[in-house]
Write a protein that binds this DNA or RNA. Structure first.
Lengths: 240, 240
DNA sequence: TAGTGGTCTAGACCACAAA
DNA sequence: TTGTGGTCTAGACCACTAG
């Protein structure tokens, strides 16, 4: 039978995977086409079916193919462009650009939750939440206004932290293991206070990211990140 | 030895995977902790090592764990919030909301590429590119202005298509298998023509997605999607 | 019935890292 | 040397689909 990887860095299942990827990328197989079966490729490459299966499973996970039990494996219709959008800690983001990060804490206090706020945390109106309002500067220029509510149960010592030294994002990710997040991205005008804190006009468009993160099914924190449209953009890429 | 899945819908490797996920989500293991070895879990669950290995591989792929050969498997540090942002065909998006989609083609012609445009396609200035300008309406309300350049080599018959019936996105994905995409998302004011076509004021913030897609290393199309900030937002979620 | 994918096994050899 | 993960095998049983 086939030899396992001798010492070279390329496992056998990758050979099969690349063979299929190249066939699809080159147009040899187009969306909807039936691909060779696991058994067929196993014979062709002199590999066991499990090894070929792994190549197929990874391609399935990547959305390159579709599989139907009892029928076969097909090239997927690439009608979705999905891309991984990484929302990161501002500090890391700025540091990676080789720039200086500064955080100005404008507010850090306990507040009574409004009905709407409480609802988003799954708590009763009037309960105490922690609130922080921090402006992040890159090389002295304000690029993000971080307006955050925190569930005290998940971070009891939140009010005692020094957020000019560590970011809430960083702290909260350590305090409560992240299990889920929801976000929206939109373009609107800044609030009056936001405009003032960011040093921009009231008519300058802002890119606003709202994000709620959950740990063990419980909402940990809800944040509104306001970025001057002229100074900030999100970017990313996608590899099929 | 262990019994394989008798008929029930839950494979054995999922039992192991869920066991680990729950242990991490519940805080039984925190980031940095050493998890049980494959052999250990194999004994505990009465499974072969390969089956346990599959559970670990999938968790690794999901970013839940980190593995070091010769050392062990650890709970990952969750210091990045990455989320899958799916940029989809507008038509599908609107149809899924149960709404009516209409496309108005305002321009469809061959143009001479400017130096900048040519560069983004890796072509020489002055070559012919195809250009289309289409406004998409949801239930009669303009929500997206699609300003697109297309590489003629990848879609020779682009100018002959009826984009009130099929979207450029849909057509291009079929014409050229997608291999890579780059995008940016930003908030700015609309151009004069865009404001007019979308029926909005010149001072209304817009959410702008710019995207270039590649097929086999060659740029296929570059598009600027302008959305009125008051009528459109991106949303998504992330499961750890 | 024949062919497909979905899962699982009980071994195996290897590279690697720590003691 | 021991234990870890990384890979691979040559079978196996099952569910499902098509002819």
């Amino acid at each position: 039978m086939a030899r396992k990887s001798p010492s070279g860095p390329e496992p056998q299942y990758l050979k099969v995977k690349n063979h299929l990827r190249e066939g699809i990328a080159s147009g040899r197989w187009v969306p909807g086409d039936l691909l060779p079966s696991e058994a067929e490729l196993g014979t062709q490459f002199e590999l066991s079916r499990m090894t070929v299966n792994r190549a197929f499973r990874e391609l399935l996970q990547e959305g390159m193919i579709e599989r139907v039990q009892g029928v076969g494996t097909f090239v997927a219709q690439l009608h979705r462009i999905s891309s991984t959008l990484t929302v990161r800690d501002v500090h890391d983001e700025i540091a990676e650009r080789g720039h200086q990060h500064e955080a100005r804490v404008h507010s850090l206090a306990a507040v009574k939750a409004s009905a709407e706020q409480a609802a988003s945390f799954g708590l009763k109106p009037g309960v105490t939440l922690f609130h922080s309002l921090i402006v992040h500067l890159e090389n002295g220029v304000p690029i993000q206004c971080e307006d955050r509510l925190v569930n005290p149960a998940c971070a009891p010592d939140y009010l005692g932290l020094d957020f000019s030294q560590t970011t809430p994002t960083h702290y909260l990710l350590e305090a409560a293991p992240l299990s889920e997040a929801k976000y929206t991205i939109e373009a609107t005008l800044p609030g009056e206070l936001e405009a003032k804190l960011l040093g921009i006009g009231k008519r300058e468009p802002c890119l606003i990211v709202k994000r709620t993160t959950y740990s063990r099914g419980q909402a940990v924190t809800a944040v509104r990140l306001t970025h001057p449209g002229s100074r900030y953009l999100l970017q990313g890429s996608f590899q099929a």
